[in-house]
Design a protein around this nucleic acid. Structure first.
Lengths: 121, 121
DNA sequence: ACAAGTACTATCATTTAGGATACTGTTGAA
DNA sequence: TTCAACAGTATCCTAAATGATAGTACTTGT
């Protein structure tokens, strides 16, 4: 009952919880960018996934897509003011991690360990 | 995922991105709670999922589990200071949503609409 | 004697996110 | 003339998250 509940915190969370969305916002905070440029910035993302994340963020009102109707195509993505207004929250999360990062036991690695042990057994 | 990069923002995000974790934190901010009490609080969660979320949060250092070794069992969950230190971030997200909620086109609801239309068709 | 509460775990199924790969049509460059 | 670049889409697939359901061992209340 997180997203179906009206909890505002989860509303905000849902907007940035995609695997690449925070990084998309970070790149677009610097300046507007074109599709293939973003794909190069976010090393490792596939065009399908990038397209989905961008479309969702556009639907959420976080960024706007401008298609110049040229050939070869030129499409520019930039943050809306709504998207830019998330920056303080992202910075707060960044600072929190920098302050408390040492206190967070690395759960991922533990899980890895568990798996290898299970396999050996 | 999001953790593959060393981005601190994503580190923080990963800690609260589980489907029920924000609500778990909210309840535990009020006071410590037992397992079945939390299950009642988070109406709709299954014990399996609650157990997983709690275990992850414990491994992440956000909460501590105290087993009193009694029978019938009594186990109490409470936030650590690390867990409590997330409160300002959650509040920031809450306030952001309350401020900007109207500007967010409801993507979820749109999808719902699509689905019902598809079913009717 | 029997049900309910306690804190879970085990097994199976479903849903969803994301990845791999291939492809589109057009243009300008080699 | 063949190639890369552009901004994607289409199809298929895997992995991870979450849900449904049932069951554990024990005790207290009726």
């Amino acid at each position: 009952m997180t997203k179906h509940s009206g909890c505002p915190t989860e509303t905000t969370l849902a907007l940035i919880a995609g695997k690449w969305k925070v990084m998309v916002i970070y790149w677009l905070l610097k300046e507007k960018r074109r599709f293939n440029q973003l794909q190069r910035d976010l090393s490792g993302i596939t065009p399908r996934t990038l397209g989905k994340q961008l479309k969702e963020m556009e639907q959420d009102g976080l960024l706007k897509r401008v298609d110049y109707g040229e050939i070869p195509p030129r499409v520019e993505y930039s943050l809306t003011s709504l998207g830019r207004s998330l920056e303080p929250i992202l910075i707060a999360m960044e600072e929190w991690a920098q302050l408390n990062g040492e206190k967070i036991p690395a759960r991922k690695k533990q899980r890895h360990l568990e798996n290898s042990l299970e396999i050996k057994d």
